[in-house]
Design a protein around this nucleic acid. Structure first.
Length: 802
DNA sequence: GTTCTAGAAC
DNA sequence: GTTCTAGAAC
């Protein structure tokens, strides 16, 4: 392959000149087809109109609603019209919903292949689209008023994000008004001769953070049979894609003389020339990928031959355990000795080159310049975990901005040789925005450089051991990240899903134990390797307490354990409000140590009084036991809504729960289950769910046992609904597992859940307000989503068809 | 947690 | 005018 010595834009024009008649197009600029993707009310027309009004280049908006002399026309008419506009050198907006790949397909064939196809995805909250389309008048497609909500809902149900693989060169995702404005600006200021960078932009899922479970569910529904998805990335991938990219990466000779800045173009040309496919098929993936530099070989002067042996050995050990996730060894230099050594040794060991390959490029620009999306990158850190010092460490800290330093500091202050530290990268970091990196894993290897601290003085026995440990820690850290994103090796996943579908599975202790051990093995069996000075002392690996409920879904929870341990602060990420930090100690009145917040108001004390003095409230209680009392919620949010109250002084909320409370939590669950079953005897049409609010309004830990009809006059507002139907509601089965494994429950409490859009818990349709939601749920008979059926979260009457 | 109510949304 | 939300008070 010839080195690229042209500027990308120049290169495009050079290519264009070779095409017959392309000269004219160059003079007129390069027309582009922008396919708008979005539900009615998402603002597609507004977007187009704005750009057309303000842009220097000629644009045509093709709108199916008006194409027939101001009236609705056909798709064919749209294509014809768009084609004509392109002939005239005009750029084109395809202003229709284009919600799925099939609808977009025909428009992607427009013009000659030189015409870039872009997508602008207006993925705004369903509620906003609904309310806009409900209230608008004079809509071109006559979609307004009452029927709009239903249409929008239906469309959102089947929305399918565009993928580069469909044939787009550029996809811009807009999740909020600000994104929309930015995208409008981008296109408004797109001059006649300008070419926008290719790739996916703004790709993120704002719901992911607050609605992990729900997003997981949506993923499963949207794309059955696909695996290897990254939670935050709605892009899909295929084997074909992975093969193409693997080729483009591994085929690149180590001594390739192409300057690294042009790696992306290099890849593009290689692929389009050699396989006839285009850049579109290979620039973005959602295959979980860890890009890592060679550890210790640069500044720490570790022997390259020995280092390459260790890399290959560790890769071989882990690669098969990471499902279809990929490991990529990256080096900036084209003549990198370590890359060629590793490549040769990996080939000799027949390591699957789809799963592991080497790549020449800047680890901080793998996507923007190399066209390779890596959700996780490793940093060859220094022991202080500080920026600077040159090399990869300086580059990564610099590219990630201060956010990485802050996030790192929150988790650890130093790192020992052989250890790794997983740091979730804040979404504000440029590395996250531009490169799609979600996590940085700091790794510290052994030092053979006398100028640096902890020099091993050429002791390669120890050095090799430590370097091996460093890679193990790194790959374990990567595995733990995969698990947090709902991804895990397929085999374990299938196995655990199988056993999760039935409530009865809760007693399959033996089986679970085997799996847990298998996974332990899979994770390297050396969990203590990952260093973190925030590690809580009460973590224990002897998790096999009685098995039963906490034994379920063990794969995921073990991974969660790893996650918490590794990052030492993942819980914090899930609960950004500092008041819920796991270390908080509270006084009995709920005021924390700072005395600043969270005193329980007088109205919040009633449950506490029930728990402490049940005999005074005998008439209001269903059951009084030594450890718990059971009562009807005073304001039930469903036909049946009971509370199981803990009778321990000082146990006010889920955040107060620690491992010592496990027996109590088990009792609460068992009593809750008993009552659910009792109520099911009275009315077998009910379905129950047991769980805790992440942050309760009422003092004294209480388990909600609530029927899933939500048929109650007391369910009045968003907060009511969302507190039972978002991740804010923590299923008792999950809490038991978490506490059993990690000694604490995950709290999902940021205030956003209150204002989250209202979605039916069964069919997931969105509704503009509480009354409409209630009308809907009173008749929705859709089966419950898989995630709710998993792990025995729902309790049905025996024999009932779900 | 609920109730009350101003004012936004319809 | 009526419906609905959200914030303050309790």
């Amino acid at each position: 392959m010839e080195p690229m010595d042209l500027h990308p834009q120049t290169a495009s024009r050079e290519i264009a000149k070779e095409e017959e008649g392309a000269q004219v197009k160059v003079e007129n600029g390069k027309p582009v087809v922008v396919i708008m993707v979005g539900a009615p009310g998402s603002g597609k027309s507004t977007f187009c109109d704005h750009v057309i009004r303000t842009s220097a280049r000629p644009w045509v908006r093709i709108c199916q609603d008006t194409i027939g002399n101001g009236k609705a026309g056909t798709k064919i008419a749209c294509i014809k019209s768009a084609s004509n506009a392109l002939e005239e050198g005009k750029s084109v907006f395809i202003d229709r919903c284009n919600m799925d790949g099939e609808q977009r397909g025909d428009f992607l064939k427009l013009g000659n292949p030189e015409v870039e196809k872009h997508a602008v995805v207006l993925d705004l909250p369903a509620k906003l689209c609904i309310s806009r389309s409900v209230k608008r008048t004079g809509h071109e497609g006559n979609l307004q008023g009452g029927k709009a909500a239903a249409v929008v809902n239906r469309m959102l149900q089947k929305k399918e994000f565009p993928k580069l693989a469909e044939g787009f060169t550029r996809i811009t995702f807009c999740h909020n008004e600000k994104d929309v404005e930015a995208a409008m600006n981008t296109y408004s200021t797109l001059g006649l001769l300008d070419v926008l960078p290719s790739g996916c932009f703004g790709l993120k899922n704002p719901e992911a953070k607050v609605q992990l479970g729900i997003m997981r569910f949506l993923k499963k529904v949207d794309i059955p049979g696909k695996d290897g998805l990254v939670e935050s990335n709605p892009q899909h991938s295929s084997d074909n894609q992975s093969a193409v990219e693997k080729d483009s990466g591994s085929r690149r000779p180590a001594n390739d003389s192409a300057p690294s800045e042009y790696v992306h173009m290099d890849v593009k040309n290689t692929v389009s020339q050699e396989s006839g496919s285009s850049i579109r098929t290979n620039s973005v993936y959602s295959i979980p990928t860890l890009a890592f530099p060679s550890i210790s070989t640069a500044d720490f002067q570790f022997n390259l031959d020995k280092a390459s042996d260790i890399i290959v050995e560790k890769v071989e050990e882990f690669v098969s355990k990471l499902g279809n996730a990929r490991l990529v060894l990256v080096d900036l230099s084209h003549g990198s000795k370590i890359l060629s050594l590793v490549k040769a040794k990996a080939a000799r060991k027949s390591i699957d080159s789809k799963k592991f390959f080497t790549f020449v490029g800047d680890i901080t620009r793998l996507y923007s310049q190399g066209g390779m999306k890596c959700n996780v990158i490793a940093n060859a850190a220094n022991w202080r975990l500080k920026p600077g010092g040159g090399g990869v460490n300086a580059a990564i800290f610099s590219a990630a901005g201060p956010a990485l330093e802050t996030a790192t500091k929150e988790r650890a202050e130093s790192l020992a040789p052989g250890k790794a530290l997983v740091v979730p990268l804040p979404s504000t970091s440029p590395l996250s925005i531009k490169e799609g990196v979600t996590h940085v894993v700091h790794v510290l290897g052994p030092n053979m450089n006398a100028q640096r601290p902890n020099c091993l003085n050429n002791d390669y026995v120890k050095g090799c051991k430590v370097l091996g440990e460093a890679y193990s820690s790194l790959f374990e850290g990567f595995a733990s990240i995969l698990s947090t994103q709902g991804w895990m090796p397929k085999e374990s996943n299938e196995k655990s899903l199988k056993s999760q579908n039935q409530i009865e599975s809760k007693h399959h202790d033996g089986d679970q134990k085997v799996k847990r051990e298998a996974l332990n093995e899979c994770m390297g069996g050396k969990k203590s390797k990952i260093f973190c000075n925030e590690l809580k002392p009460n973590f224990s690996h002897s998790v096999d307490r009685k098995g039963n409920i906490e034994g379920r879904k063990n794969v995921e929870s073990l991974n969660e354990f790893e996650r918490n341990k590794n990052s030492g602060g993942f819980l914090k990420e899930l609960k950004p409000s500092a008041s819920h930090s796991v270390d908080r100690k509270e006084n009995l009145d709920g005021r924390d140590d700072t005395g600043m917040n969270k005193a329980w108001g007088p109205w919040a004390q009633s449950l506490y009084q029930f728990a402490m003095h049940p005999e005074r409230h005998r008439n209001d209680l269903r059951e009084i036991l030594d450890d718990v009392v059971v009562l009807d919620d005073l304001y039930p949010k469903a036909r049946k809504h009971l509370l199981v109250l803990a009778r321990v002084e000082g146990l006010d909320r889920l955040a107060d729960v620690s491992k010592e409370h496990l027996p109590l939590l088990n009792t609460m669950h068992a009593v809750g289950l008993k009552w659910a079953e009792k109520l099911l005897n009275e009315n077998e049409s009910l379905v129950f769910r047991l769980g805790y609010h992440s942050e309760p309004s009422m003092r004294q830990l209480h388990l909600h046992v609530i029927s899933q009809d939500f048929d109650s006059k007391h369910l009045k507002n968003k907060k009511h609904w969302n507190s039972f139907n978002t991740p804010f509601f923590r299923d008792s089965v999950d809490v038991l597992q978490e506490v059993s494994k990690h000694g604490e429950a995950i709290i999902r409490d940021d205030d956003s859940f209150r204002s989250m859009e209202l979605r039916c818990h069964r069919c997931r349709s969105a509704h503009p307000n509480i009354p409409r939601l209630k009308t809907h749920i009173s008749s929705c008979q859709a089966p419950f989503p898989g995630v709710m059926l998993d792990n025995g979260k729902l309790v049905f009457a025996p024999g009932r068809i779900r």
